[in-house]
Every structure is written in structure tokens, then in C-alpha cells.
């Protein structure tokens, strides 16, 4: 049941427990209970809305920062990761294979805000060896969704055989 619920919710978090119950042929109470359990167990970590902020008046920038760090004995990368992800500006943090260690996705109101975060908060951390900051110029696709669809209208005829 878990996987079926998650597959549907991952694409559309607005589906209510009643909708899910109909789609999966399960009693609504059972679905609601399972949802509650998955939230408690942090299998479901949030119900977000994917916003294309470019279409609003809100000014903000996103940056991807490559960070090289020194892992700590007994803690690996977890401790430094924790130091970093606790900042509100950090929207995502991944441990990477390859030429650097951490990918930090940061959002700020202006480039200056992000620059300040990197130079004042991130780079001075003791384990951080280096940072390389890349600003996002335009978001085309996010979370599997194309943000500006070329064709949005239903081209189909209103009635067809």
C-alpha cells in the first residue's frame, strides 16, 4: 500500500486521503492511517508546492556551491554537513562523488546576500577547504516538471471517435 500511495502523492500532493482511497480501492481510514504513519516515520517529509517564482514579482537568486571539506575523524562528512544545512539559506545539500565533496543549493534575495553567506558563513568554517559558487540564470525544469511548457493547450478536438 505504501508504495502505491507514494507513487500517486509524489506527482500530486493535493490528492486527499479520500481520493487516494478511491484510486487504490482501499478504505479511506486505512489510507489516512498509513499516511499518518509515513509522516511519523519521515517517509513523507513534506507536502510542497512547486512555484515558478520567475512569474511573480519576488526577486531572488539561487546558487549552486561546490564545496571541498576535510572530513572529521569518527564523524565523516556528517558533522560539517549538519553545520551547513542548519542555515536557512541552504535549500538542499548533497554529498557528492568526484572532484568536490558537497553540493550546497542556496537561495538569497540578491547576489550580494548569497555572496555574504558564502564569504561570511560557509567559507570560514574550519573544515571547509574551498568553495566555487555558480549562480542559476534560469530554471527550465524542476522536480520533473517543465516550468514553461511550449504547448499547454489541449490540441485534441472536443469530440472524436
Amino acid at each position: 500500500m505504501r508504495e502505491s500511495i507514494l507513487q500517486l502523492l509524489e506527482k500530486n500532493s493535493r490528492l486527499s486521503p479520500a481520493d487516494l482511497a478511491v484510486m487504490l480501492g482501499l478504505p479511506a481510514e486505512e489510507v489516512a492511517a498509513e499516511l499518518g504513519k509515513m509522516i511519523d516515520e519521515q517517509v513523507i517529509c513534506g507536502f510542497h508546492t512547486l512555484v515558478n517564482w520567475d512569474k511573480t514579482g519576488r526577486e531572488f537568486v539561487t546558487a549552486l556551491i561546490e564545496v571541498k571539506v576535510t572530513p572529521q575523524r569518527g564523524m565523516g562528512f556528517d558533522r560539517i554537513a549538519q553545520r551547513i544545512y542548519r542555515f536557512d539559506e541552504v535549500k538542499a545539500l548533497y554529498l557528492m562523488s568526484g572532484g568536490f565533496d558537497l553540493t550546497v543549493i542556496v537561495e538569497g534575495a540578491t547576489i550580494r546576500d548569497v555572496a555574504f553567506f558564502v564569504s561570511d558563513k560557509l567559507a570560514p568554517l574550519e573544515s571547509v577547504l574551498s568553495t566555487a559558487t555558480h549562480f542559476v540564470l534560469k530554471k527550465y525544469k524542476d522536480h520533473g516538471i517543465v516550468l514553461e511548457k511550449a504547448v499547454s493547450d489541449d490540441e485534441r478536438m472536443i469530440v472524436s471517435p
Binding site: 489541449d154 485534441r156 472536443i158 469530440v159 472524436s160
Partner: peptide, 19 residues
């Protein structure tokens, strides 16, 4: 189809092809 096509703003469950 000829009738339905004339109705402004109609929504449809009349289509025989995938969306």
C-alpha cells in the same frame, strides 16, 4: 462534434485519444 465545437468554453469527456 459540429454541435459541440460551437459551444464557447465547453469542457469535454468526449475525446477518443490519450491526453
Amino acid at each position: 462534434y459540429d454541435i459541440a465545437d460551437e459551444i464557447e468554453g465547453a469542457i469535454s469527456l468526449g475525446v477518443g485519444e490519450p491526453d
